[in-house]
Design a protein around this nucleic acid. Structure first.
Length: 489
RNA sequence: GGGCCGCUAGCUCAGCUGGUAGAGCACCGGGCUUUUAACCCGUUGGUCGUGGGUUCGAUCCCCACGCGGCCCA
C-alpha cells in the first residue's frame, strides 16, 4: 500500500478532528434509502423537479468523485444502490464545499439536499448539508478493472462485494435460496431444529472428521460431518418432520466442489420413503429455481439445464453399465480388481470404494440434466434400508444436476439389528483401509431399538445448489469466506 | 501429496537476449459549473513474494520456501 495515500487520508482525519468534527459519529440523521428514493423519483422529469422541489437526505459510501472547480459530483452508494450527489460552491458555505472536495473514495456521508436532473438526465441530489459518517483510511480497488486477484477477493471479501457486482449478486441469491427453502419446508410442516455440531462420535456420512477437545470434561469431540443421526433421534422422539440447515465439517481436500466446511439442509419425514424424498427434493429445487431465475431453464457450464418435467430415475448399475459400454456390471460376480485395472482407475481398498470411483469418474460428469441415480450398493450406504428386489442394494438416490451431486436421500434403515450388522461391516471396511468407514455408534443403536418409524431422509448441499443456480465455476464463489491457508507464515 | 502456471506501485497490468523498472487508474499539486471510466497540465509512489546461489552485475538464470490458480491424487 502506498504510504503516501494513507498518510494523506490520515492527515485529513487529523484535520477534521482538529476542527471539531467527529469522523466516526455514533448517530445518523434521518435518511431515505437510495433504492426507495430512486423508486419514487426516477421517473420524474427535470422540469417537474424544478417546479416542485424535492428535499431528501441519503446516507452512503462515496464510490466516485468528479470535481469541476466550482461544481463537483460524488457517487454515493447505499446498500448496492448508487445516487449521484452534486456540490455547488455557489450553494454551499465555503467550509462545507471545501470538506466536500476533500472527501475520499470509501468515506461514508450523509447528504441533505434537493433533487435535480443534470443535462445528461442523471437524477442528482444537490447538497445543502453534508455530514461525515465515517472516514475510510485505505483506498478501494481501482474502478476500471475492479478487483480480480482471486486471493484478495477471498481474503478481503468486503472489497469484492464493494466493487464486483457479481459477488454481491451471488451473496443475495444465496440468502434468497435459503430463505425460500425454509418457507418451502415450513409449508410442508417441517420443524426447524438444531442439533450438536460437537459430537462424541461422528457419523451420517463417509468422511474423515475434524477432532477437538473439551477441556473441562477432558473429552475428545468431533465436529459433525453430518447431522443425520441426531435428526433421526428426533424422529424416534416423535418429531415426525424435522429439518436443519447447518454447517458440516469434513477433513478432506479442498477443490472446486469441496470446502472443509459447507452448508447442508437435511430433513427427515416419518411415514415416507425415498421415493417421497424424490418428490420433495424436486419440488424444492423447482421452487428455488423459480425464485432465482423466474423459470426452470438456465445455463450451467455451457449447457442449458432444464428442470421441467419428470426427472429420470436410473439405477446405478444401469448408469455404470452404459458408461462402460456394457463391460462393467457391478452386480456380476466378477473380479473387480481386474475391472479397476482395465478401466485405468486408481486402486481402491474395497469394492464399494471402487464402485464409487467408477461412478464419479465415468458417470457423474455426464449428468447435466437433473437425474436421480438410485439403488446404491449396500456397502456404500450403511444407513439406508435394503432394496427389496436385491439384497445387495439399498433404497437410496442421489440427485445430479450440472454434473454435480446436489442431494442424497434414503429410505432410512430402522431395523436396529440390521443397523448393527452394517456398522460391523463398516468396521471391517475400516480394517481393510477405508478411512471413511462409518464408526460404530451404540447410542444411536439404542435409539433405533426404541423404534424409528418408517422414515425418508434427504440431504441437500446448499453451496452446490447455489453454485449450480448462479453457474459459478467454483464453490468458493458462493461461500463468502472460503477456507484459505494463513496469509503469513 | 504430485505436475504446470502465477506473484512487479493501493488496483489492473507491461517489462526483449541478464545491465537494479514502466503505463493506466488511484494518490498529491494546479485548472475547470453539467460530469458519471469526466477532462487538461505537473508530480509522487517499488524490499520486483521470501531466502539462498551463479554472475562484474539478477525482476530476468538456478535452488529452496511461502501464498494463490488450474489439473492430477
Amino acid at each position: 500500500m502506498s504510504e503516501y495515500e494513507r498518510d494523506a487520508r490520515r492527515e485529513r482525519l487529523g484535520a477534521l478532528r482538529e476542527s471539531g468534527i467527529e469522523p466516526y459519529p455514533a448517530r445518523v440523521g434521518p435518511r431515505t434509502p437510495v433504492a426507495e428514493l430512486r423508486a419514487e423519483h426516477d421517473a420524474r422529469e427535470a422540469e417537474a423537479l424544478e417546479k416542485e422541489p424535492v428535499e431528501a437526505a441519503v446516507a452512503g459510501r462515496v464510490m466516485a468523485h468528479r470535481s469541476f472547480g466550482k461544481l463537483l459530483f460524488v457517487d454515493v452508494v447505499d446498500d448496492g444502490h448508487a445516487l449521484q450527489v452534486s456540490g455547488r460552491k455557489q450553494q454551499l458555505d465555503p467550509e462545507t464545499f471545501a470538506r466536500m472536495r476533500e472527501l475520499d473514495i470509501g468515506d461514508f456521508v450523509r447528504v441533505e439536499g434537493v433533487l435535480w436532473r443534470t443535462r445528461s438526465g442523471e437524477l442528482t441530489l444537490d447538497t445543502r448539508r453534508l455530514e461525515l459518517l465515517g472516514k475510510a483510511l485505505r483506498p478501494l480497488p481501482e474502478k476500471w478493472h475492479g478487483l480480480s486477484d482471486v486471493e484478495t477477493r477471498f481474503r478481503q471479501r468486503y472489497l469484492d462485494l464493494l466493487v464486483n457486482e457479481d459477488a454481491r449478486r451471488i451473496a443475495v441469491v444465496r440468502s434468497r435460496v435459503v430463505s425460500r427453502m425454509r418457507r418451502f419446508l415450513e409449508s410442508r410442516d417441517f420443524l426447524e431444529v438444531e442439533t450438536p455440531i460437537l459430537q462424541p462420535i461422528y457419523g451420517g456420512a463417509a468422511a474423515r472428521p475434524f477432532q477437538t477437545h473439551h477441556n473441562a470434561l477432558d473429552q475428545d469431540l468431533f465436529l459433525r460431518i453430518s447431522d443425520e443421526l441426531y435428526l433421526k433421534r428426533l424422529v424416534v422422539g416423535g418429531l415426525n418432520r424435522v429439518y436443519e440447515i447447518g454447517r458440516n465439517f469434513r477433513n478432506e481436500g479442498i477443490s472446486r466442489k469441496h470446502n472443509p466446511e459447507f452448508t447442508a439442509m437435511e430433513c427427515y419425514q416419518a411415514w415416507a420413503d425415498y421415493t417421497d424424498m424424490m418428490e420433495l427434493v424436486q419440488a424444492l429445487v423447482v421452487e428455488v429455481a423459480h425464485e432465482v431465475h423466474g423459470g426452470l431453464r438456465f445455463s450451467c457450464r455451457g449447457h442449458e439445464v432444464d428442470l421441467s418435467g419428470d426427472w429420470p430415475r436410473i439405477p446405478m448399475r444401469d448408469a455404470i453399465l452404459e458408461a462402460t459400454d456394457g463391460t462393467l456390471d457391478i452386480l456380476a460376480d466378477d473380479d473387480w480388481k481386474a475391472h479397476e485395472r482395465r478401466l485405468g482407475l486408481d486402486p481402491k481398498p474395497t469394492w464399494a470404494q471402487f464402485v464409487d470411483e467408477v461412478f464419479s469418474e465415468r458417470v457423474e460428469p455426464t449428468l447435466v440434466q437433473p437425474c436421480f441415480i438410485t439403488q446404491y450398493p449396500k456397502a456404500l450406504t450403511p444407513l439406508a434400508k435394503s432394496a427389496p428386489e436385491d439384497e445387495r442394494l439399498v433404497e437410496r438416490f442421489e440427485l445430479f444436476v450440472g454434473g454435480m451431486e446436489v442431494a442424497n436421500a434414503f429410505s432410512e434403515l430402522n431395523d436396529p439389528d440390521e443397523q448393527r450388522r452394517r456398522f460391523e461391516e463398516q468396521g471391517r471396511a475400516a480394517a481393510e483401509g477405508d478411512d471413511e468407514a462409518h464408526p460404530m455408534d451404540e447410542d444411536y443403536l439404542r435409539a433405533l431399538e426404541h423404534g424409528l418409524p418408517p422414515t425418508g431422509g434427504l440431504g441437500v448441499g446448499i453451496d452446490r445448489l447455489v453454485m449450480l443456480l448462479v453457474d459459478a465455476p467454483s464453490l468458493r464463489e458462493v461461500i463468502l469466506f472460503p477456507h484459505l491457508r494463513p496469509e503469513q507464515s
